[in-house]
Amino acid sequence: MPSSAQEAFDKLTHTVGTPTVDNAKMQTRNVNVFYGEKQAIYDVDLDIGQNEVIAMIGPSGCGKSTFLRCLNRMNDTIPSCRVTGQMSLDGEDLYGADLDPVLLRARVGMVFQKPNPFAKSIYDNVAYGPRIHGLAGNRAELDDIVVDSLRKAGLYDEVKDRLDAPGTSLSGGQQQRLCIARTIAVSPEVILMDEPCSALDPIATARIEELIDELRENFAIAIVTHSMQQAARVSQRCAYFHLGKLVEVDDTSTVFTNPQHELTENYITGRFG
């Protein structure tokens, strides 16, 4: 990092751009995250709007994945992880006493970096969520949910003849779409995606990106990505993280064509990262 950039980072006390939106689905204010003694996230304010795709970009270890995982309390499984500040979903405090993490995760779904289908059939993979949450009254309803979710994930035509085949028998891209279908099947309000295409080839990636764009109609989507091109292609807003701080957030076009902060510009123009 050039020394001027280091200075710029040290001086950084507030986020450049517009972290808030009017129709916010999720809101975070003054969020700090610690792993034991080590602080991973510093004072992040960020909104995720209805029906938008917000991309989170930044160099490795910048805290974007950590931040994402706090949004549905996936970090609860790590004992040393501590979160301070406010995070809310439709105004409800995520870390409040009366909010149940199980319910939260049903409302805020997540798709992971590596496709992780369960060791079950394709059908059972998608039916898993509805089954545990008791979303389907009978077999016919469940069938509807499964077929509908697979359709939305653009996978149905490819697998309709082999719903009983194991989920792991699919190709990498298909597996990831299966995981997306699995997430949609619970009818969440927000979908978090943690580098969903990093393990996929370009063709599979293009297919998923298309899908994300379609899904925007129904869900608020937050996606962490390593690829700036991907962020530019799929997102409406873009947030740039650097060493645990949210440097800049704005409309994607603004961030990529006219970055306000020196660090963002360095990253976008490929000077580091």
Binding site: L103, A106, R107, H133, G134, L135, V186, S187, P188
Partner: peptide, 16 residues
């Protein structure tokens, strides 16, 4: 979708 989302919330709450 919104309707089904809120239905989800209700159902999940009931099962908790």
């Amino acid at each position: 979708q919104k309707a089904s989302s809120s239905a989800t919330t209700e159902r999940v709450k009931a099962s908790l």
